[in-house]
Design a protein around this nucleic acid. Sequence first.
DNA 1: CCATTCGCTCAACGTACGTTGACTCAACGA
DNA 2: TCGTTGAGTCAACGTACGTTGAGCGAATGG
Lengths: 188, 188
Amino acid sequence: MSERLPPRAERRRRTERHILDAARTLFAEVGFERTTIRAVARAAGVDPALVMQYFGSKQELFRHAAEAAPPPEEGLDADELVDHLLGTLDTKIGELSPGSLAMLRSMLTHPEAGAAAREALARQIDRLATGIPGDDARLRAALMTVVMLGVTIGHQLLELEELRAVPPEEIARLLRPSLLALTGPEVS
Amino acid sequence: MSERLPPRAERRRRTERHILDAARTLFAEVGFERTTIRAVARAAGVDPALVMQYFGSKQELFRHAAEAAPPPEEGLDADELVDHLLGTLDTKIGELSPGSLAMLRSMLTHPEAGAAAREALARQIDRLATGIPGDDARLRAALMTVVMLGVTIGHQLLELEELRAVPPEEIARLLRPSLLALTGPEVS
DNA sequence: CCATTCGCTCAACGTACGTTGACTCAACGA
DNA sequence: TCGTTGAGTCAACGTACGTTGAGCGAATGG
């Protein structure tokens, strides 16, 4: 039953995947500008011209490599939102997917990547805001988002030892009250 | 009494400042890689060779442009620390100094800049930790730091409209309980 | 007044990049 | 079996970059 792909198409698919893997790794490690087509090709064991032939341009290669953005979560109530956000810490901190890391790093340097990242964050803020009461829900949701963003950047990009030395659960434990404080309109 | 500088030295000083201003602006706007010596020189109304002559290399130019890191604060208690951090929001959000923004943007792309930024953040974490009780003080301090970092990046680099639409005081108001929650070892 | 300093420019270098077009050769379909 | 397709390579292009060394002309100081 397992349809054996004909060697031609299979090889094509495999090479394309190799190129994308190499691209994601490099984009994530050194950002958009410092990633060269030649380096991607070398890492994929392939001629630079082939990368161009498959993806057309460096921009397009980045677009393909940065795809697969994490899906935003459903409408939950405030406490569940916090739990969900903290749950993503495992992903964000343990082993952020190369695609997301590539986007995270490049969005701060490369304009086109920045636009895509802004959209993704805006969607997450929208979802979060639906679970937060009050008329400053969107602002609170935005703050929760950038808090998580800061932790991720501090961990993944800046590699702060304080954050790397402890398990994600420990970080989640300390972060929970902080995020909860952002959801609730305090009794003042 | 005002010692008039001789035209020669004064011109020198002025041109050097023009170059540094242009460099800071460009580094902040497009990051290290995409900032070219030629563009800096053009913005400063000067020949590219002069930039090299004054600063030796692009690396050195960046080092000079990124200097003047904000001084870390004194040893205060937890509440005062939070107030101080929130006080810096004005600077971070209102009009982040071009030097800091240049470093903020470039540190995510450029290795050498990243090292400098890491050091600066480590110093801030050290200072913060002295005002926090408990043995996880450094972790808590690190989290407070990356929270502020996230807000700054969300505002300055990603330009999230939710954050840009409100005055810094509003952000500080919502952020205060969140930061306070990070300082205190809760009664569990 | 004249030799010297020095801010500054000009023209060029070597290099690395993204990208292209012509090519090779194995897999394919009829 | 044979012409065609398509994966993959090769060599080269134009361009932009960081960087250099020679030179110009005005300010300098004795």
